[in-house]
Design a protein around this nucleic acid. Structure first.
Length: 559
RNA sequence: GGGCCUGUAGCUCAGUCUGGAUAGAGCAGUACCCUCCUACUUUAAAUAGAAGAUAGGUAAAGGUCAGGAGUUCGAAUCUCCUCAGGCCCGCCA
């Protein structure tokens, strides 16, 4: 599509001496591109309708531009659809699952940190938002050619895990599934008993001092946690390359080095209790007191300092592209870290913030035990998919049924979460999360299987040299246009860190295909048209698959 | 009190960055319909027959784009104010 746009800009440039901004008309019947004449009208002090008429008279069609038409104050362009079809379909056929990638990350390294759930319990569906967005961005980076590592930061230090360590004492054979209950219960006790709070902090202190027994206790619990969390995420198809442990930074030599460097900037001061504090007045943060406290009075590190050290390590590992996915609660905090990093001469990672998933009127809270666990939702949705498949296909083998119900169920979860723009808070609704209709993953997967079925039935190799001018229904044009737009969508999704753009586009494509499916039979028409349509739908299949895969969703051939 | 985000159909959302032609989808409800999918039947075989849907399609219906003001030839989109919800505002992580 880019070629055609450029061709239009080129011929317009000869007549109009200003920046040319083309638009897409609201209805394709009006044209493929439009040039509005309002800004010219102001300049020339003439009626825009007149200007459009004059302008159109001076423009001549070219091999890529078929027709130029005036519609009110717009000059509308119709591109050569046959040419578009040929160029697009041939390119998809040639590039296969690489179609859509501009390979902008070739030879570059990228690193993304996401999910990084506190190791205190089984993740709730709110956390899944982080994982699903992060995983999709990882896939996008890789698709664009970046050598990408997905990192997971294990917060195995701190009050949260200390609470769990305390609560799990004297209990043997603790399983991942027990932790949530232990965590919630211990938290309740904590509220009533101030002595207990002291004990928790004692425990933490011991760990930070390197006490062997404390270390072992923390290790035991965090291992159970991380393993349990990884199992769930892996089951969803979300995998990490590197786990980084916060505890490693407790005694890291880079911490004093960072403090020294900050001292040189003159912004670091020590308060009356001996705490090292970074003054951030210059950054105009909306805080009562714009500071970042980096150490305790006894010199031990606080989280922000360890986070800075960790982030610097990440930047060093992948200087080309660094991403992180964080909850909206971390917006201000992350700005503070970014400011500290800039003082140290580093550029902060590109960040995606997402809003919380609400349960009724409240945000989900592990602490209060008010959660819908991700693994429960997963089980439920797979069960529902299983029933649906059985209803349609009672003879399916057990193995195939299990695999397919996961592909469909997990696809539905991922799509449902990713299609919503990250800065929107979501009210969790089980019924809706379990829906397989309309704007949902199964709809897109279904379109893919329909094409697979037609191609299977056809059974023969596809012919690439078809008569592209036979593809002339509006359904076919719509499909071709959507296919040709795909690379731009991918580029925009990665540039703006918005994988939901891909979800929208895949859905549009599936919808356009279903319209086509009802109006344009493939196998029953005469040979030449059949060949052209077969080529078209195989390209649609490819792009549906690529798009779904970028969201971490599989595209089955049967369902 | 201050800052950031959100408010679009009964419900869930896209569109807002980069202002343009009648504001798009889905769900639920209404009225229809298809079959290259699925299982079944006939058959030498089928692109045959009859059947099925909360993963298909069409149509109608559903909107003060939270409210107000401003900028502009033109505002859901930009600016300001108000209202409502979410999140955040040193010594937790």
């Amino acid at each position: 599509m880019g070629k055609f746009k450029q061709a239009i800009i080129n011929i317009l440039k000869k007549q109009v001496k200003q920046e040319i901004a083309l638009e897409i008309p609201p209805d394709s019947k009006l044209g493929d591109y439009a040039f509005p004449c309002f800004s010219l009208a102001k300049k020339l002090k003439k009626n825009p309708v007149e200007i459009a008429k004059d302008l159109a008279n001076k423009l001549k069609p070219t091999p890529l531009i078929k027709e130029i038409r005036v519609v009110g104050p717009y000059v509308n362009f119709f591109i050569n659809k046959e040419k578009l079809a040929e160029l697009t379909l041939k390119e998809i056929f040639k590039k296969k699952d690489k179609y859509g990638s501009a390979d902008t990350g070739k030879g570059k390294k990228a690193l993304i940190e996401h999910t990084s759930i506190n190791p205190n319990a089984s993740p709730h569906v709110g956390r899944a938002r982080n994982a699903i967005i992060g995983d999709s961005l990882t896939r996008l980076l890789r698709f664009e050619g970046y050598k990408t590592k997905a990192h997971y930061w294990v917060n195995d230090v701190g009050k949260q895990i200390a609470i769990l360590v305390y609560g799990a004492r004297n209990k043997k054979n603790i399983k991942f599934g027990d932790l949530l209950k232990i965590y919630v219960e211990t938290n309740e006790k904590l509220k009533k008993d101030p002595e207990l709070v002291k004990e928790i902090f004692n425990l933490l202190k011991k760990l930070e001092q390197g006490d062997k027994k404390a270390k072992a206790e923390f290790k035991r619990i965090s291992t159970i946690c991380v393993k349990g969390q990884m199992k769930i995420l892996n089951e969803l198809g979300i995998k990490f390359d590197v786990l980084d442990y916060e505890s490693k930074y407790l005694w890291s030599k880079t911490l004093p080095a960072i403090l020294k460097k900050l001292e040189k900037t003159g912004r670091l001061f020590t308060d009356e209790a001996g705490r090292k504090i970074l003054d951030q007045k210059e950054f105009n943060f909306a805080m009562k007191s714009p500071v970042l406290v980096l150490t305790r009075g006894d010199g031990t590190s606080l989280y922000p300092l360890r986070d800075i050290a960790y982030t610097i390590d990440k930047i060093k590992k992948a200087p080309d592209r660094n991403l992180i996915v964080l909850g909206e609660d971390q917006k201000l905090y992350f700005k503070q870290i970014a400011a500290a990093l800039s003082l140290l001469g580093y550029k902060a990672p590109e960040v995606v913030h997402y809003s919380f998933v609400l349960l009724g009127r409240e945000a989900m809270s592990t602490r209060a035990g008010k959660v819908v666990l991700l693994e429960d939702l997963m089980k439920e949705i797979v069960e529902k998919a299983r029933k649906e498949i059985k209803k349609r296909n009672p003879k399916i083998s057990k193995l195939a049924l299990e695999k397919l119900s996961r592909i469909i169920g997990y696809g539905a979860i991922k799509y449902g979460i990713i299609k919503v723009s990250p800065d929107k808070e979501v009210l969790f609704n089980l019924e809706q999360a379990l829906s397989f209709e309309g704007d949902a993953a199964p709809y897109c997967q279904y379109a893919h299987t329909r094409i697979a079925a037609i191609l299977r039935k056809h059974g023969k190799k596809l012919n690439l040299n078809v008569k592209f001018d036979l593809l002339k229904t509006s359904e076919e044009h719509k499909l071709i246009k959507l296919l040709s737009d795909f690379p731009e969508v991918v580029a925009s999704a990665l540039k703006n860190l918005k994988p939901n753009l891909i979800a929208n586009h895949v859905y549009e494509l599936a919808r356009a295909f279903n319209e086509f499916y009802h109006n344009c039979p493939v196998l029953t028409v005469e040979k030449e048209l059949k060949e052209a349509r077969l080529l078209l739908i195989s390209c649609v299949k490819q792009v549906l698959k690529t798009g779904l895969n970028l969201l971490g969703i599989e595209a089955p051939n049967r369902m």
